[in-house]
Design a binder for these strands. Structure first.
Lengths: 210, 210, 210, 210
DNA sequence: GATGAATGAGGCTTCATTCAT
DNA sequence: CATGAATGAAGCCTCATTCAT
């Protein structure tokens, strides 16, 4: 493609992957100003490239912002998948997912802000790529729940889908609240601290009677 | 001297409450286009007033949109409060709140769209009124949970705040998924249908051992 | 149409017809800079309106420029039609048309510049309205030629269309040359001065043998 | 030190005359998009060279486009000159010029489009080289007309300049109309078909009485 | 109170041109 | 000589807001 360098061109020699630098800058700017108040020129600035360079890598502003969110989401999910592969006990898997969710977002506030305030936006108003990723994440959760049911450790009488909503919704809600908390000090409570409280409730909700 | 008409001026002679008509139009338009893509002129159109008239009732676009969301949120909460007053059993209260939440949003799709896609936005980027309302809603939930703990029907070992997050988060998540579902047919499942599934999980999660 | 004042709104009370003022300014600017180097902001300036006002009257830059050319062309043709109505002799009609063509453009250099340098452009690359007007002008010429053939004063053996091309082409060529002549003095020869020379040739070319 | 390769450098070993390939590509692109909408990168594409290479052969975009038009115009005139040298009768010369004009453009539609829609533009807004070529073409015509007057076969009472305008203008007008005609079928009438009709009129207009 | 024509600041995007390789 | 990724200036257009009627 003339006038469009391959997205992965410089990835190998790690040197100056503008593509990635632009994506990172975009996440930063979106976190600060929100989707629709993010200016292309500011993203270019932070990525250390000229305004026009953005358009060598992305068709337009919306595609850039979408790509930034998608890309971050993608890496978020990939990490979860890898981590789960090493665990067997469904209850432990669930606990681990909760921890990864809270820790992953808790350690990257910008990313968390974007996920909690802009992701739904992009789902409703922009594109469909993110939607597939969300489905993938849900499938991951549902898979664990199903395993648990088959292993007899999770209640067989409840809808896996509903349980997944409860699990994800609870985590999501905690993160949102954390994001909206302005007080620096409160944030230091490291989001992942809440893992046990949440898991304690949801797990008991889904566990089969002893 | 331009004066801003009292918000309730025409409410009495129900005839032409432009204030409310503008707020309703705003919710509609936000639901369709999102917060930052909503044009003042379109809101004016739908409310059947001139562009300039908007500014007799609201200071600027952001205040109008905030007011629209706040007003809708306010009515949403007021209904919940009223309904709860008639119930005693904490478990029944929780079940009732879940139903009201799902039914209230399930029967006004526009409102639901705004709540699920724009409310966080406004919480993070705009003002603080909605934030207070959200706190109020959470307090309502927490109040019920605390009552339950005192009555010995809810586990005493868990954080009321965390439990509230799980409860609200689960409901919120269901609504979001419903919103993002394009298929007309699926929507007909009336959101409130899911009440029992959700409550079954969360309630068991928070209930004290029999 | 909301947000679009009727094009003829103020025409009656002659006062401040912005629509026309913008069109006139556009012709001026196009004559100076050419179609694609005309800036909307400069047209707005000369018309004494804000940049945004242009867009209350025209959909976009191209539509404005096209409208300017079309409008001028339209008035040019209307004048020719009126004048011809008073004349009977086909030869005299032809002579009159030549004079009007040369005098009309010779007295409005800006208009002439636009017609000779931009009209073909707009015919090929932009829209189709001008094309219809050009056809109309040709029909006017052809009508005169046909009358002359029927009256026996013009050669019956030649294609009216070809003759019309010769007549129009000759005039058009003279105007173009005049336009491209930079020397002020030469221009003072009043374009219409050439009427007789041209008519002498073309008329003899089309006249029936005595 | 970047050096500009001699325009004829590679012409000898006919192999890779980039200079000419760029000029040809330019004519193509201008014909399609018009002068100001032609992109350097598209011309480079079609010439099969990199964008930057253009600047090894031409100072800037305008010079390239001008050169393309000039070069094509030059070859057009050269052919006419050569052909005329073989003919003696002024009337026959005129007829021959008309044929060459119509046939030359009729067989290269792209070239014709550029001549009819962009040449005036470049004359008015760009440079002066083409202007000299146009003068040369006119001198060619005027020379023939003067010969004819001296030989007593053309009217002595008319301005050679005016007659030249009529001759050129008539041909030019036919070509323009042909260009603007979209219908493939009509074009197949081979522009040169019109030679006799045109010559019949103009020649009679300029011929001396028998 | 109500109107809606007018305003003009601000941002996305294009594309001619450069220069390190 | 040739490349093509990168640059950054420049301009069209939108739309929140004002104010004369």
């Amino acid at each position: 493609m003339k006038r469009r360098p391959a997205a992965t061109a410089n990835t190998v020699n790690g040197a100056s992957d503008k593509h990635q630098r632009i994506l990172d800058a975009a996440i930063e700017v979106i976190a600060e100003h929100g989707f629709f108040h993010s200016r292309v020129s500011e993203i270019a600035d932070r990525a250390g490239v000229a305004d026009g360079t953005i358009y060598l890598y992305f068709k337009n502003k919306d595609e850039l912002l979408m790509a930034a969110i998608d890309s971050a989401f993608h890496r978020f999910i990939a990490r979860a998948k890898t981590a789960l592969a090493e665990i067997n006990d469904p209850r432990e898997k669930l606990r681990r997912m909760a921890f990864l969710h809270l820790d992953g977002l808790g350690s990257k506030r910008n990313l968390a802000v974007v996920f909690q305030t802009e992701l739904r936006h992009s789902l409703k108003f922009l594109g469909h790529f993110s939607h597939n990723l969300l489905v993938e994440y849900f499938d991951l959760i549902k898979g664990v729940l199903r395993e648990g049911q088959e292993a007899g450790v999770f209640r067989a009488d409840l809808s896996v889908t509903m349980a997944a909503h409860c699990f994800f919704g609870s985590l999501d809600e905690i993160v949102t609240t954390w994001i909206l908390t302005d007080r620096e000090r409160d944030r230091e409570h490291h989001l992942s601290t809440f893992t046990d409280s949440i898991v304690s409730i949801v797990l008991k909700g889904v566990e089969a009677e002893a």
